[in-house]
Design a protein around this nucleic acid. Structure first.
Lengths: 353, 353
DNA sequence: CTGAAAGCGCTTACAG
DNA sequence: CTGAAAGCGCTTACAG
């Protein structure tokens, strides 16, 4: 086990100084650095002959940067279930990290026994191992986010987030406008009794949708019936009977807040032997992740998950490379409206059913 | 507050030397090292207050460890297509890394313009940033693997690999035995004209299956008809006509080497209006990844991808923790036989069809 | 055009 | 029980 050659070995073999070896290898040519072609040749020849390979750790230490981007998720990033939740984001994160020349550091050592993950372990911000990090997913506990903001650790959150400690840098999706577009589409088809079925949870991404729903009505000079904004604890609460109740209240169209609710809705409507859009118009506020076709021609909008991941990396790289401007990037990406065929014109028959 | 705190900052804050900080943080307690509880407390308090995290690069350079496990794939790890190829491995890798307290370093900065990845970029073995690495996937070019072995860099390959430079540490799946089991199952049902449809490629995992096929015949005191071992360049070469030709040669059963070939086969057989197992018995040598049901009750074997990932991490952790025993771990995990219903008993009707 | 020197942030013998 | 010092293998001003 002969030791691998070091820079100094190459220098000796080529009859130059270590500095010159470094210069040649890194192709540093700017400024007042100029290497004779002959010297360069000798160095490269020695590198080749000795099989020299620079130590990346030393390189990074000396260079003062580590080109490591952290990826932190509050839950395991590769869960067996819901495998697809993080996946499209990761596709974007990875490909952009590749372009920007960063490696990705996945914080897997921060898990508690419940597999919920913590930024601060033993009071230490593990993320500091990376130059900056991307945060993904939903944290039960907001205090870690607050602390990160207070600490001024460079990070980008995927998904809009608010914190008391100050502005959070994020790449979000514009659920508000997208929801407005969907609901306006329903209003334009003559519907006014449009139910909103969402979770009880309060979360930025959900609040945005709820605002979008309201916006749509206001833009039509209407205001939504508060009775039709329904918040349930779990998708299971959405039962055929419950749905029937809604229909009897004159609901002619319905939007659900998430993919999980959408599939539950589809199940119920089938049980009832009814079909959208004839019996009820229906839309999902965001396409389900994965490519399992939830319902073929569902009316919805596309969440640009991949682009969000890529944009987050790009912003983070800028934050790290660029001069430290104090401004906190906050970006909302548009969601593309997917017309589908589950929303139809309100007919007298439907309305009076 | 701008710069991240260094060890020296903690030392000053706690009124001790950097060495003591290092000792406390790494829980070095053996030998003649003993830290007063009071000192330890002061150090940890300072660490906490300053938010100190050791620089992994410096740590590695100084001869310590990183608790970073590299994950290297020869292609993007999160491809949009074939998303599921790496996925189940990653599930295992992540959960085991979590258990062992390692973070995962994904080498995304090593991509060439073709997105094929290289261990050695500009002559640098990027993997050395991590204590050790897991390698996944198929490399066109074997020279990097050879070089890693020669360099004695600690790594585990997921999937059996051979190298000229010496033994490769791996966690493989026992495709050979699994294939034997499948083919014996066919032989036991009376089939003898069993075609083997595989790729032209030569690769350990494929070679193992080909051996397993041969083994099965030998165990029945037979030897396979060389004419029935067929190797095609792409799945597209498997056409209905081609299949018909096989049937006319008296083939009554058929195994395909991969999931891609399996779905192509299923397509052809449907075109021909035939059905397994009545018209032909059929098995796939390994379940397709993902959970898209290729063919509901297909006869195959289950590749324990998740377990392979976990085992690789476990072995690597042992390699790194343990005293440097020179032995190279090579493990083959069993594949579970999935009987399915696409293999049936050979009847006179089928044989003489 | 190239070398000598300092320094990146740690860990590990070695003293005391 | 803890500190001072050397060293890991590089890069980058700074001289000359």
């Amino acid at each position: 086990m002969n030791k691998r050659p070091r820079q100094i070995d190459v220098a000796r073999a080529a009859g130059v100084s270590p500095a010159t070896v470094s210069l040649v290898i890194n192709n540093r040519t700017g400024g007042n650095v100029r290497i004779t072609p002959e010297t360069r040749r000798r160095v490269l020849e020695a590198v080749d002959r000795l099989g020299y390979v620079a130590d990346p750790a030393a390189r990074r230490l000396a260079g003062g940067f580590n080109t490591l981007l952290g990826v932190f998720t509050f839950q395991p990033i590769f869960p067996l279930r819901h495998r697809d939740f993080y996946y499209p984001f990761l596709v974007g994160i990875e490909s952009e990290a590749e372009k920007q020349g960063y490696d990705l550091l996945l914080f897997t050592s921060t898990g508690g026994p419940d597999r919920a993950r913590h930024v601060y372990n033993h009071g230490v911000n593990r993320l500091r191992m990376a130059d900056g990090s991307i945060l993904l997913g939903v944290a039960e506990d907001r205090s870690e986010l607050e602390r990160l903001v207070r600490e001024e650790y460079p990070f980008i959150h995927v998904g809009r987030r608010e914190a008391k400690a100050g502005p959070v840098a994020y790449v979000g999706a514009d659920y508000r406008s997208a929801t407005t577009e969907v609901v306006r589409h329903m209003l334009a088809q003559g519907h006014t009794r449009i139910a909103y079925v969402g979770a009880t949870q309060v979360l930025e991404s959900l609040t945005d949708r709820r605002r979008g729903y309201r916006d749509a009505f206001e833009q039509h000079g209407l205001s939504p019936d508060p009775q039709l904004s329904l918040h349930i604890k779990t998708p299971d609460s959405l039962t055929p009977d419950w749905l029937l109740g809604l229909l009897q209240q004159g609901v002619t169209a319905l939007v659900v807040e998430s993919g999980a609710l959408a599939s539950q809705f589809v199940r119920c409507i089938k049980t009832l032997g009814k079909k959208p859009p004839c019996d009820i118009s229906f839309a999902s506020l965001g396409d389900p992740y994965g490519d399992d076709e939830l319902y073929p021609g569902i009316t919805t909008f596309h969440i640009p998950r991949q682009e969000m991941g890529a944009a987050a990396v790009r912003l983070l790289a800028q934050m790290l490379d660029g001069p430290d401007t104090a401004d906190v990037p906050q970006i909302m990406l548009p969601c593309e409206f997917v017309p589908g065929d589950t929303v139809g014109r309100l007919t007298a028959a439907t309305a009076e059913r």
